Amino acid sequence: MKSFFPANALSLLLAALALAGCQPHRTAAYQGYLEGEFVAIAAPLAGRLEQLAAPKGTRVTAGTELFRLEQGAELAALREAAERLRSAQARLTDLRKGQRPSELAALEARLTQVRTAAELSGLELARATKLRETAVLSDDDYDRVRLNHVTNTTLITEIAAQLVTAQLGARPDVVAAAEAEAAAAQAALDRAGWAVAQKSQSAPRAGLIADTLYRAGEFVAAGAPVVLLLPPENLKVRFFVPEAEFVAIKAGATVLVTLSGRPTPLEARVSYLSPQPEYTPPVLYNRENRSKLVFLVEATLADEVARDLHPGQPVDVTLP
């Protein structure tokens, strides 16, 4: 069969097809944006905002004071708790000591006196025993001397026990109760110190003060965020990939991020792949509807790069 194409036209068509095959393949660019995951800094206690140390737009380092609420009531409670602890510890120390030195000295003197009396009554009993053997001393007089010596000997045992008890201090159960009271006072002091510390909040990490939600003098409810902090590691690249190309992207893979005004793309690492599509048609997944599905992918940038970027910036993401 004779061809309907002129020879020169066929040559031009073949050349065009060959030229098209030699051109490099352009990688598709995925559209996305930068998003920040803000850290809301709040105090667990309520109070009037006394000082806002870091205004909006300030870059802070970890440990920098961000704001401070009024602390009058908490400081008063701290002083009260400290005095209660001092009182409980003094009472516990006193119970462990036993009686005062002057009381102990009186008991020791009384013990010496009773020992002397017992020694004297012992000599009298010895003489009375000899006299009774010779029938010079009556039985009544002998019994009187003997019982006096027994009384003095018993007093020695009694006062010696009193002296030992006075040196020991209070009973164990009383000391245990005082120890528990001192421990409770220490816990109250710790709680009061914690309350004072919570009225002043510092940056947990370095980052940018993205926003401040209160002004000095305003009342802040307990747990209400006062400062929004954006650490550089919390800035992420979010982009959307069609269903047909989603399987080619793996977690940990490197992607190139292009922003307006930057001559060279930035490298980012894929950190998250959405398990669900962003758009689901209300019909079965036929070939036509599957082409409409896109999946969310997140990637992270190096901290030194992310600190100069801002949430909301549009980006184009390509695979290297």
Results as ranks from 00 to 15, higher is better:
M1C: 06
F4Y: 10
N8H: 11
L13A: 14
Q23I: 05
P24R: 05
T27S: 12
T27I: 05
A28V: 10
A29N: 04
A29E: 06
Y30V: 01
A42R: 07
A43R: 06
G47P: 07
G47W: 08
L49Q: 08
L49I: 06
L52H: 06
A54C: 08
T58G: 02
R59P: 00
G63Y: 03
E65S: 12
F67G: 01
Q71D: 15
L78I: 02
A82R: 13
E83W: 11
Q99E: 14
R110W: 04
R110I: 03
L111V: 05
T112I: 03
A118H: 03
S121A: 15
L123S: 10
L125R: 14
R127A: 10
A135R: 15
D143N: 15
H149V: 00
V150A: 14
T151K: 11
T157N: 12
A160R: 10
T165F: 08
T165Y: 05
A166L: 03
V175A: 09
A182M: 03
A183D: 11
L189A: 07
K199G: 13
S200L: 09
S202Y: 01
A203P: 05
G207M: 02
L208G: 00
I209A: 05
L213C: 04
R215T: 12
A216L: 05
A222H: 09
L230D: 00
E233M: 02
N234H: 14
L235E: 01
F240T: 08
E245T: 04
I249K: 04
K250Y: 06
T254L: 09
V257D: 00
G261P: 04
L266A: 04
V270N: 01
S271Y: 06
P277R: 07
T280W: 04
V283H: 09
R287Y: 10
S291K: 15
V294C: 01
E304K: 10
R307F: 00
G312S: 05
P314N: 04
V315A: 02
P320Q: 11
